[in-house]
Design a protein around this nucleic acid. Sequence first.
DNA 1: CTCTATCTGTGGAACTATCCACACTTAGGC
DNA 2: GCCTAAGTGTGGATAGTTCCACAGATAGAG
Lengths: 131, 131
Amino acid sequence: MATFTAGELEVMQVLWDHGALNPAQIEERFPRPIQNAALRSVLLVLMEKGHVTREKVGRSYVYAARTPRQNTFKNMVRRLSDVFCGGSPAALIAQIIKTEKLSKEDIAELRRVMSQAEEPAADTRKKGKRS
Amino acid sequence: MATFTAGELEVMQVLWDHGALNPAQIEERFPRPIQNAALRSVLLVLMEKGHVTREKVGRSYVYAARTPRQNTFKNMVRRLSDVFCGGSPAALIAQIIKTEKLSKEDIAELRRVMSQAEEPAADTRKKGKRS
DNA sequence: CTCTATCTGTGGAACTATCCACACTTAGGC
DNA sequence: GCCTAAGTGTGGATAGTTCCACAGATAGAG
């Protein structure tokens, strides 16, 4: 469903980072050299899959991501935790903490993030921190 | 390098979970129906890529994972954090905490894991806890 | 030895991903 | 109108993935 090949993901990343662009602008920001026509092939595939839309502006098309970055992120996290951690995101995090060397600063920062994640059980709306 | 297709990953998962098996045993434990010959095709690809080895036992081959589960896990975590979090594993964890709803028990458990990760900064050797 | 069940080796079909060459279209300058 | 530059549409080559049909090999029962 929301599954991307390596090349498709590279394109999505550029669109997520820079917003709507035409092929030439994507090519400029692409992480590696790529032919304009090859890039456009990937864009067509992404359109067929429904992950990007385009709009004619002047004589060129401007492409924009349609599938949100965060959806894709969640799906990929899910897949990773399914394969390696029995489907539990918490177990996935624990595993990452154990296998990656984190600095003291990283861990302190994560403690803060966890505290914030605990609190806003009351407010599902915008950014919370209720008055 | 240590990159797997979806089917290859399914096979590796069975081998990681159950150790060395012959094709028929892998087929039994496979997450979906698959033809024995199709399964063996994947195993040959994995051998070419160096991810599994096999050994003749009786009249059949017994296949075993050669690429450790943990290596693959680390690679996939790296890729995820490269795409979505600027390459920082800590930022990746923070992102997961924010997007996945974790229970209070999960968070408590993660605090414990983090504390353990902080301590053994002194000893790079076996299991440490120096006298 | 012969038969059968079980397992492997091999070749290749169907499909997808990736990349490119080439022709077509259009805006703007002359 | 005519030319050029920039951009697009299309078809297809190449390679990789996934799956299977069929033939060959071998252990064990009789």
